[in-house]
Measured scan of single mutants.
Amino acid sequence: ADDEVAKLLVDAYRKNDEDKLEEVKKRYNISDEQVKRLIRKVL
């Protein structure tokens, strides 16, 4: 599931889509710190 979330985050990140990032964060209840970590893992 982590990889799936990471893909969604990276996708939103690449598109610079703040709304999507927020949506994913809320849906999976993850912190900014986790977001950064997941994005770093993929990029």
Rank of each mutant, 00 (worst) to 15 (best):
A6R: 08
V35M: 13
S31P: 04
L43A: 05
D3C: 15
Y13W: 15
V5I: 14
K25G: 02
V10E: 06
L43M: 11
K7L: 11
D11F: 03
R37F: 09
L21F: 08
R37H: 11
D2Q: 09
L21R: 02
E4V: 11
K41I: 09
K26Q: 10
V5G: 04
S31I: 02
R14W: 13
R37A: 14
R37M: 12
K25F: 02
E23V: 05
N29H: 08
E18A: 15
Q34N: 06
L43I: 08
Y28G: 00
L9T: 01
I39F: 04
V5E: 02
A12W: 04
D17V: 03
D11K: 04
R14V: 12
N29G: 13
L9G: 01
D3L: 11
K15T: 12
K20M: 14
K7S: 08
V10F: 14
R27A: 10
D3T: 09
K36R: 14
A1G: 11
I39V: 07
I39W: 03
E23M: 10
D11M: 06
R40S: 12
E4T: 09
L8D: 03
D11L: 06
A1I: 15
V35W: 11
A12R: 00
I30D: 00
D3H: 10
A1F: 15
L38P: 00
D2P: 11
A6E: 09
Q34Y: 12
K7E: 08
L21D: 00
D19W: 10
K25N: 00
K41Q: 12
D17N: 06
K25A: 06
V35T: 06
D17C: 03
N16W: 07
Y28W: 07
A1N: 13
L9W: 02
R40Y: 14
L38S: 02
V24C: 04
I30Y: 05
A12P: 01
R14I: 14
L9Q: 00
E23D: 07
V42Y: 15
K41H: 10
A12D: 01
R14M: 15
D17R: 05
V24S: 01
A12H: 03
L9I: 13
R40G: 09
L38H: 02
I39T: 02
D2T: 11
Y28D: 00
D32Y: 05
E18S: 14
L43Q: 05
R40W: 14
A12I: 04
Y28M: 02
K15V: 08
D32Q: 05
V35Q: 02
V5A: 06
E23T: 05
D11P: 01
D32E: 08
A12Y: 07
E18N: 15
S31Y: 01
D2W: 15
D11V: 04
K7H: 10
K36H: 11
K26T: 09
L38D: 00
S31Q: 04
V24E: 01
I39Q: 01
K26E: 05
N16G: 15
K25L: 03
L43K: 04
E23N: 05
V24M: 11
E33S: 08
L9H: 00
L43Y: 08
K20R: 11
L38N: 00
D17M: 05
L43R: 04
V10Y: 14
S31A: 04
L38T: 03
D2V: 10
D17K: 03
E18R: 15
I39H: 01
K20P: 01
S31W: 02
V24L: 15
I30A: 01
E4F: 14
V5L: 13
A6M: 13
K41L: 12
L8R: 05
V42P: 02
E33I: 07
A1C: 14
E18D: 11
E33Q: 07
V10T: 07
Q34I: 09
D32P: 05
E22S: 08
E22R: 12
A12E: 01
K26Y: 06
K7M: 12
I39P: 01
V10R: 06
K7Q: 12
A12M: 03
E22Y: 08
E23G: 04
E33R: 06
D2N: 11
D11N: 06
L43V: 06
N29T: 03
Y28I: 01
S31H: 03
D11G: 03
Y13A: 03
D32I: 05
L8M: 12
R37E: 14
A6N: 06
A6I: 15
R27T: 09
D17T: 02
L21K: 02
E18P: 14
Y13C: 09
E18H: 15
E18W: 15
N29P: 00
R27S: 05
K41A: 12
V35A: 15
K20L: 14
K15G: 08
L8K: 05
K15F: 08
A1T: 13
L43C: 12
V10I: 14
A6F: 12
K7D: 06
A6W: 14
N29I: 02
R14C: 15
E22F: 07
L9S: 00
V35D: 00
I39M: 07
E4G: 07
V5P: 04
D19V: 13
R40L: 12
K15R: 14
D11W: 06
D11S: 05
K26D: 03
L43W: 08
D2R: 10
V5M: 08
V5D: 02
Q34K: 06
I39N: 01
I30N: 00
I30T: 01
D19F: 12
A1E: 12
Q34P: 02
L21S: 01
K15D: 11
K41W: 12
S31R: 03
E18L: 15
R37N: 12
V24G: 00
D3W: 14
R27K: 13
E4K: 09
N29M: 07
N29L: 05
V10K: 04
L38K: 02
A6C: 15
E23A: 10
K25D: 00
D32S: 07
K41S: 11
R37L: 12
D19Y: 11
V24T: 05
V24W: 05
V5T: 04
L21N: 00
Y13L: 10
E18T: 15
D32T: 07
E33H: 05
R40A: 14
Q34A: 10
D32A: 08
V24Q: 01
